[in-house]
């Protein structure tokens, strides 16, 4: 099987390498999701002039462990009239699609396992677990499939808040998929490829070659749509606690609820990586800073931006959300694509 490697000639990608990569992604991103909750609480507390978690461990760091113990040991309740099979499958769909989407983007640098380690020594672990030629579409498609998690969860739990949450899921994700797709279309036209590696190489000429300078409108549109697709404030209408209790997650507790959570954080990371690779120069070296540190910094920045926005903005109403999508963002996205096309032709 022909595989494209990141920079020049790298060792061949083997099945073992991909398997190790998959396990790494699962383990590390799940852990980051846990650590992300701590970061989120600390950042929010800092911005709201509170302390955040302080009691468990130094600086409240062990709060993650305490939360984990709580999630794992909590009683698992399936509501009486719920469709129990779908109720149990729904959180798995959210988590699974989020992690499958991560298979298509570069996560962590590639490396070769040292020879002295038995069995696996010398195995090359690629940066992208599954380097399909249409990486960017694959990620978008997988995140689109992720809407079935909240949707089925809301419909299966025999709870009116759940139904409203499910309806909002369908509306919000469907609408903002359009904006995500259209905003990514302009950079795709510039690169002429759907592969994330080609995107990275197109921006290898230093900071001036980043697409954010050529496509600032698309970048802003993609970020806004990304917030809506990852269900983050100010667009977290799916589980807007002031209106619909907890939306699609109302009846969930314990680890099933935890899987929704992990899925959401994995999606946040995916969107951050996508934004970094498509608009901010990807994993190219930046001066003396190595590429893999750069992409970690960029992803960390986007992650922080999501927390920042959550602290700064209130929720929007559902009708405002639809108004924003169809009357503001989508026309701008279409105009952006048309203008990009005209500029490229002239």
């Amino acid at each position: 099987m022909e595989t494209t490697t990141l920079i020049g000639q790298l060792p061949e990608v083997t099945a073992a390498g991909v398997a190790i990569k998959a396990i790494l992604i699962l383990a590390i991103i799940s852990a980051i999701a846990g650590f992300g909750t701590y970061l989120e609480r600390k950042v929010l507390a800092f911005m709201q002039r509170r302390l955040g978690p302080t009691h468990v461990g130094p600086y409240g760091l062990l709060q993650i462990a305490a939360d984990g113990i709580k999630l794992f040991t909590k009683e698992d309740i399936v509501p009486q009239h719920a469709n129990s099979l779908i109720f149990k499958v729904a959180p798995v769909i959210t988590a699974a699609t989020a992690f499958i989407a991560l298979a298509g983007v570069p996560v962590f640098p590639d490396f070769t396992i040292p020879e002295f380690i038995p069995v696996l020594g010398g195995t090359f672990v690629p940066s992208i677990a599954s380097d399909v030629n249409v990486g960017i579409l694959f990620v978008i498609g997988m995140m689109a499939a992720g809407l079935y998690g909240p949707l089925l969860a809301g419909m299966a739990q025999a709870n009116k808040w759940g139904i409203i949450g499910a309806a909002r899921t369908a509306i919000q994700f469907l609408s903002y998929e359009v904006v995500t797709g259209l905003s990514l279309l302009a950079p795709i036209m510039l690169v002429g490829s759907l592969s994330l590696i080609d995107f990275n190489e197109a921006q290898s000429g230093g900071i001036t070659s980043w697409f954010i300078w050529q496509q600032p409108v698309a970048f802003v549109l993609f970020l806004i749509a990304g917030f809506a697709e990852t269900n983050r404030t100010p667009f977290d209408l799916l589980e807007h606690e002031a209106e619909v209790i907890s939306g699609y997650a109302t009846e969930y507790s314990g680890m099933r609820w935890g899987m929704f959570f992990i899925g959401e954080y994995a999606n946040m990371i995916t969107i951050s990586i996508l934004a970094a690779v498509v608009f901010l120069g990807g994993y190219n070296d930046f001066g003396f800073i190595a590429g893999w540190i750069m992409i970690l910094l960029k992803v960390a920045f986007f992650f922080f931006l999501m927390l920042w926005v959550r602290a700064a903005w209130p929720h929007v109403r559902p009708d405002q959300l639809m108004w924003l999508c169809w009357k503001v963002l989508m026309p701008i996205a279409v105009i952006n694509v048309v203008v990009t096309g005209i500029v490229m032709m002239v």
Binding site: L137, F138, A145, E177
Partner: peptide
């Protein structure tokens, strides 16, 4: 690959 992804986006999504 392209048709596979389009199948995902159009039919599933």
């Amino acid at each position: 690959d392209f048709l596979g992804v389009v199948q995902l986006i159009v039919y599933v999504g």
